[in-house]
Structures are given as structure tokens and as C-alpha cells.
């Protein structure tokens, strides 16, 4: 029996996910342009693994496989995994990570809409804990040609340290710690001087800042399409800017500028695509602000004082845990119960 309403807006989970995928395209294009085609291979690997893993579990659970594969949510997870893993990660690392995300973090919790944790970020955390070295090898922009990248992804032996460096975030942290240490050869260098090096671009990492710009453009398009609301991106960027700005203002020679933090690593991806995952994120307006600001502060703390190349993934998971509480405590007053 079908009851009112008898009309519906032409909206679907599929179209929501499709628009998210489209919004990622500018960022991916910049990524491939600056860092080589390895990222495209990773996206293909992750997509295939995600679809295969999702289909298998759906079949076991007795769910309509075509319907749920068609919602494209697994592909969004796959792309986020590919974009957060190093582009030269060996194929099995990407595939294992993706399968963990889809099978364990998403499907074992009940599938679409039921996972308390962001699957892509959970996969990132699992893999960086299990394979810290492989997950920390990032090529600099234009450093590796397509053939080398493919060889690294599919080949066996890796003479990795010779050809890759750390991420700009990592490099800066190591250098700044060195600079603060009187015994180091880097002693006396300032953050601003460090950033004149070849790994750095105008405000962020060389090349990476353009990828971040691509994510920003895609994210703004999602905002305009009303797929996401302004709360999470704005609160995340503002809080990250504030946290970085505070320490930078206190000690400019010891900390990177807030703009560098916004343009580096996964900040833009996190602000517009990762934290905005509705399933694992906060849902109320005030809750979203809290959730994103908390994630930003945690990200900054992990980036500056932690040991991992970027803090977005751990920050996201930590804030995911807080979501039920945040949502419960930030319910807006309903009609007729507002205080004027």
C-alpha cells in the first residue's frame, strides 16, 4: 500500500554519490598531472577491489547486489582510499586496504548507512599502523615517470628510499625539529627558509597545492549543488587556520603558516569529502561545526606533534566516535519551542 506523499523529488543515493565522484575529478586531474599516472592505476585497483568485496558480502548477506552496487557508495570509498594512500603503494596494499574498508568497516557493521566509522579513513589508519614504511613513501611532483611508478606498484623489489622523500608536511616537521635541536646541522634555519626548498610550492607542497585547489573547486561545486552544507568545510578550515595561526603567531620560526596547513596534505580532501561523509559524521548544524572543528584541532596536533605524515585519518576516526554524543546534545529546538 502506497500512502502520501505520492510525488517525490527525483533524488537518489546514486545521484548523490555520482556527484561526489564528479566533484573529485578536478583534484584527481591535478594529481595525475603533477605526480604521474600512478594515481589513476590506484583508483582503478581500489574501485575493482571495492566492487568485488561489496558484491561478495552483499551476496552472502542475501541483499540485492545490483541495487546496492548501483548506489556507487563503494566507489566513493575506493576513490578516497586511492587518494589518501601513496600513489606508488604496492597494489596489494591498496587492495587489502580497500577490502578492509568495504568488508569490515562498512558491511560487517550493516552496510550502507550503518558504519560508525569512515571506511576510507579506517582503512588508512589500519594500513599505516600495519605498514608504516610503505604508507609513508611519497614521490615528489614530477620525480617519477610512469614506468617507474607502474614498476613500484606492481613490481617486487623496492629501492624506495633512494627515489622518494617524505611529504612536505613530514619534511617540514622533521626539519623544524632538527632546526630546534642545537646538535642538528639544520640548526638556525627558519620555517620560511625551509619552504624555499624544491619540495615546496607557493603556499603548500609543490604540486600538492594544485591538487588541494582541485579539491576545493570540487567541494565548492558540491556546496552549490547542496550535496553538502557549509558547516563542516568552513568549521574545519577555520579551526585549522586558527590552531595553526595561534602557534605560528607565537613562534613563526618554529611553525608553518596556517595557509601552508590548509593547502597541504589532505586538508581540502578532508574538509570537503571525508568529514562530510553523512553516515559517520555529525548531522545537526551545531554538531557539524563542533565535529569539524574538533577534527581540525586533532589534525593539527597530530601533524605537528605526532609521528604520522598526516593527521586527518586519525582525527576523523576520533571524531566519528564522538558523533552520537554530539548529535544528541546539539539537537536544534523544534517549531514552537525556540527561545526568541
Amino acid at each position: 500500500m502506497i500512502n502520501s506523499p505520492f510525488v517525490r523529488k527525483p533524488a537518489s543515493v546514486q545521484s548523490v554519490m555520482l556527484q561526489v565522484l564528479l566533484a573529485l575529478v578536478p583534484g584527481i586531474a591535478a594529481y595525475a598531472w603533477f605526480f604521474g599516472p600512478g594515481i589513476l592505476v590506484q583508483i582503478a585497483l581500489a574501485t575493482a577491489a571495492a566492487l568485488a568485496g561489496e558484491a561478495a558480502v552483499l551476496a552472502i548477506r542475501g541483499k540485492p547486489v545490483a541495487l546496492f552496487l548501483g548506489d556507487l557508495s563503494a566507489i566513493v570509498t575506493a576513490w578516497l582510499i586511492a587518494l589518501t594512500f601513496p600513489p606508488i603503494a604496492p597494489w596489494w596494499l591498496t587492495v587489502t586496504g580497500t577490502l578492509l574498508a568495504i568488508v569490515i568497516v562498512k558491511q560487517l557493521y550493516g552496510g550502507l548507512g550503518q558504519n560508525p566509522f569512515n571506511p576510507a579513513m579506517a582503512a588508512f589508519c589500519l594500513m599505516i599502523v600495519a605498514y608504516p614504511a610503505l604508507m609513508s613513501q611519497w614521490p615528489a611532483a614530477g620525480q617519477l615517470d610512469a614506468g617507474t611508478q607502474l614498476e613500484l606498484i606492481f613490481g617486487g623489489a623496492r629501492q624506495i628510499d633512494a627515489i622518494t622523500g617524505a611529504t612536505p608536511l613530514d619534511a617540514l616537521r622533521t626539519a623544524l625539529r632538527g632546526a630546534a635541536d642545537p646538535a642538528s646541522t639544520l640548526h638556525g634555519l627558519r620555517a620560511a627558509q625551509l619552504m624555499d626548498g624544491p619540495a615546496f610550492g607557493l603556499i603548500g607542497g609543490h604540486g600538492g597545492e594544485w591538487v588541494a585547489l582541485g579539491y576545493l573547486l570540487g567541494g565548492l561545486w558540491l556546496l552549490q549543488r547542496r550535496i553538502i552544507t557549509w558547516h563542516i568545510p568552513l568549521a574545519f578550515c577555520a579551526a585549522l587556520f586558527a590552531a595553526a595561526g595561534l602557534l605560528w603567531a607565537l613562534k613563526p620560526e618554529g611553525f608553518a603558516s596556517p595557509l601552508f596547513h590548509l593547502a597541504s596534505g589532505g586538508a581540502m580532501l578532508g574538509a570537503f569529502f571525508i568529514l562530510t561523509d553523512p553516515v559517520s559524521g555529525a548531522t545537526t548544524a551545531r554538531g557539524k561545526l563542533l565535529f569539524a572543528a574538533g577534527a581540525a584541532v586533532l589534525t593539527y596536533v597530530i601533524r605537528v606533534f605526532g609521528a604520522y605524515p598526516d593527521g586527518i585519518a586519525f582525527a576523523t576516526l576520533l571524531m566519528n566516535i564522538c558523533v552520537p554524543l554530539i548529535d544528541m546534545k546539539t539537537q536544534a529546538p523544534v517549531f514552537g519551542h525556540k527561545k526568541d
Partner: peptide, 28 residues
């Protein structure tokens, strides 16, 4: 008035809360 497409799980996107004239959180 075609029958609605198959029901999918809630993804907590909050569209319903945005549309609710009584300021409720329908997904909750």
C-alpha cells in the same frame, strides 16, 4: 504517480531535516 523506487538504507544526509517545516530531525 509512479510507485517509488526501492527503499534504500538511510545515509543520514539530513535532507529531511532541511525540508522539515517543524524543525524536526526526521532521520532520527
Amino acid at each position: 504517480f509512479p510507485p517509488p523506487p526501492p527503499e534504500m538504507p538511510c545515509i543520514r544526509c539530513g535532507e529531511c531535516a532541511k525540508a522539515c517545516p517543524a524543525d524536526l530531525a526526521p532521520f532520527e
